[in-house]
Design a protein around this nucleic acid. Structure first.
Lengths: 132, 132
DNA sequence: CTGCGTGCAAATGGTTTGCATCCAC
DNA sequence: GTGGATGCAAACCATTTGCACGCAG
């Protein structure tokens, strides 16, 4: 495991990554904080933020945006489509391989395109029920 | 103009919408603030936020997210693909009609899907140059 | 040993909100 | 005239950061 990963593997960093890979939800930073605190009670929220940032910079997790306030994190670093609930902001994975639309050269506006995020937006079953 | 729009049309609201429709960039709230202040110098940042929120709730503008910190606003309310620079976070429109991937019923996880955002991520010409 | 990572707490910065006043209808 | 909209400033809250200590390599 310590086979030259290019960075130090503290207990905190290890547990954060493990916990994030364990779930299919897409927790916010403080949800990760809660999860990890079950294992390392004295971990600090700052450390969680630092590591989530670090892990996503290493491409080990995905940082998800959306017009909502908080960022969410995805333990699966391979880009894949998501569904976001426009009411409660919950994000779920889409298990199916949507064929990512290719962007013809003449429309790239000089950008080097690295990847493409596809996000479906709708209302989740729970919020649907609660609205009647 | 006053033909029953369902809401009051203050000078501030009108100018914010006009200015946002005038540009193809995707300004942040305080960039909108700067633009509008050229016309209404005494407008407050709070009003800009309130109106951007209101206009997007009415479907008149688009609120864009992305893992970056600030929200950005798009005067074109029709969903269309974007390109985001992963370095400077600038967002540009893609003029071409990318065929939005349809999501087969069995993958919707019970969501009512309303629309789909497609975002290409890459590095813009300016940042490319600055990195050499 | 070295210096990267941590805990803690304070600082930051974008966004929201309470309140008195204003103005669109 | 009346209630929604505004200006102002304070409050919020997610995220970041400085610092001294701790521990992985």
């Amino acid at each position: 495991m310590s086979t030259e990963m290019g960075f130090r593997l503290s207990k905190q960093r290890k547990v954060i990554l493990e916990e994030l890979r364990k779930v299919t939800s897409h927790p916010t930073a403080d949800e990760v904080y809660d999860m990890v605190r079950e294992i390392i009670p004295r971990i600090s929220l700052g450390t969680v933020y630092r590591n989530l940032e670090f892990l996503s910079s290493q491409g080990l997790v995905l940082k998800l945006g959306g017009p909502g306030t908080q960022k969410r994190f995805d333990g699966n670093p391979k880009p894949h489509p998501h569904i976001r609930c426009s009411v409660c902001s919950k994000i779920e994975d889409v298990m199916c391989e949507v064929d990512v639309p290719a962007l013809p050269e003449e429309y790239t506006r000089g950008f080097d395109i690295h990847n493409c995020n596809v996000e479906f937006v709708g209302i989740c079953p729970k919020c649907k029920t609660e609205m009647q």
